[in-house]
Design a binder for these strands. Structure first.
Lengths: 198, 198, 198, 198
DNA sequence: TATGAATGAGCATTCATTCAT
DNA sequence: AATGAATGAATGCTCATTCAT
């Protein structure tokens, strides 16, 4: 009887190990040897799960994106305003988990400029996130459905991404509070402008 | 007498070649061989100008940051509001030049998470840019000097960076107009909130 | 199960290959590529056994020193005088094996002037050899224990080393017989001086 | 009128510079760049004097051998016994000058194992030195002309070389006094054996 | 399934050498 | 005569990948 190995579980473990290595030492240090060692394996053991390094890295990015989504999926019972704020503030790099996500995202974003496959993954994840935001922007009455809601959502997402990007480089300047304040300021904007008009 | 070579000119040429390679094929492809070939030289020819690869990359980043600054330095006679808009909208990746800058910036940002020297360069450039923005935010009456102006400026920069980041991955969605619209929306925010109170 | 490889055996094989290359073409020619090829391998195959070139060279020297010691270790049942002569005459470069040893030793001696680790290994080996000689010098009644025996031993070792050094460069002049005669002459010296007084 | 440059003087200067670099950092560090810099020149300036690196190194060895000879050439008025002792004790590595000579000699000896030209130079120098020693060994009545004197001289030279070799590696153990004592012991040997028979 | 030995291409870097100036 | 820019081959080393076990 062959040993039963959960392929997906194993892949996730390896992707987690890769993410840890990337966050700790940069994507250049993420050699197969290093990642395998981080996961408690040897190089060759990766092969059944990922045929090439590219596959491992692509899966790692996808796992990071999926995890970000999963972490804040449960907003069913919340008021639209609270849900929107939760959706935008949640991913900020304020704890080790989210910081890991952003570091990994950034590493892959750099790769993506010259790798259409990674770029497509990023784009896809962005569009999903964007439609969630649009939905809540509409539901909370911040903008009319259609282009207005899209622009408004893009502005909000840009604020989140911009803050997160800066925060990665200067945690001293960008305390948790300041990050959240910046996103709240962006939110307040549509409060006072769009909605006051309503 | 040996051939006379303009050291700084040559360095700039090489940094430009490096930037082109990075933008086209990613920072991993920016080996000394590739960069030298892109510049029309052989590997060893780089040595008199950059002793190590690190030096070449650091210079390339610095050159990209400097160029961004230089490109929009002449706002002496403009009204503060126009100058601010120019300062924020100018760097958006709407043409090959600015796109190159952002691609390079992103590549280095990823490296910077594991390279303190590069991180310091990024941080320094950010702080300079931030103080320019603060100055104009104050001059245009969008915020009081001090923390309020700082937060407001950070919000605006975050908007620019966030938009630029997304635009790199989806030039179809993020047309020039849409990028500018998003930044204008962020600007409109302090128009309608802070200034309407005045 | 991976292929089972005897680490020490493989290391010895590689050190032997290195010694052969050094003896044939000089230590400068002993690149990883050359040594690997001499051993019938490719460059990267050395890595599991020697992480760096330094390690390979240090091991090669040590192996050569160890082999010299091992070759003449069995003098248990001999008279002190015979054992001493055996100990001193044995290492002379009179056959391919000992010539190889001396060529390697010389190559490393030159490196050692700018490499403290190699110098320490040489010194250590010398001190061990010296204490063996001292023991037999005393046992054979050629000198009193203490400084007198030390000086006498050093004189004998110097004779051996000096002869070996010259012999490496002029095998025509330094036939096996002449090498042995020179060492015997040095031995005769303490026979006739110190011992005749007894 | 072209600048008058003394070719031989320039070559000697460069060989001295090479010797200093070799003694200080080992022969591997003696690149053309380093040697030129040590002499206060640039790489290309060596070319008119030495077409290749090999030439420079060969000349450096020859210069070191010549200097050793020159340093102790003036023994015209001395008693044969004193002259012999002077000839043997003089080259011992007891001061910076002679230590430099030995370090260089050793470096080249290692190269010589795989370089017939260098080996020939060493052999030639040895034979010259040997004939000087033989002459004085005979003149001082330590041995009959012919094979006996040759063997006796070889024994003495071997003592000197052996002591010098060891002394290079352990200057703590091999003080000036101990080096001289060892050579004197070798000399005493022919005093007490050969000559007492006379 | 998992190992880790082995391959061979690729890297940054060093350097002897050439040569226009 | 002298410079030092440029070449291009070599080096030590890393690493994704393959594969016998």
């Amino acid at each position: 009887m062959p040993k039963v190995v959960d392929l997906d579980q194993r892949r996730s473990d390896l992707a987690d190990a890769a993410a840890r290595v990337i966050a700790r030492q940069g994507i250049d240090a993420a050699s197969l040897r290093t990642v395998a060692a981080e996961a408690g394996w040897t190089t060759g053991a990766l092969v059944p799960y990922f045929a090439t390094k590219r596959e491992l890295l692509a899966f790692t990015l996808q796992a990071s994106l999926d995890r970000r989504r999963a972490r804040h999926a449960d907003r069913a019972g919340m008021a639209p305003d609270d849900a929107l704020r939760d959706l935008l503030v949640g991913p900020l790099p304020t704890d080790p988990d989210t910081t890991l996500h952003w570091t990994v995202t950034l590493a892959f974003a750099a790769q993506a400029s010259s790798d259409p496959e990674l770029a497509a993954m990023q784009r896809e994840a962005y569009l999903q996130f964007r439609s969630s935001v649009i939905e809540l922007v509409v539901a909370s009455g911040r903008a009319e459905p259609g282009d207005q809601a899209a622009v408004e959502s893009e502005r909000l997402i840009a604020a989140v991404n911009g803050v997160a990007l800066q925060a990665l480089f200067d945690r001293d300047l960008w305390t948790d509070e300041r990050q959240i304040a910046a996103v709240d300021a962006a939110l307040a904007c549509s409060d006072s402008s769009s909605r006051s008009r309503a």
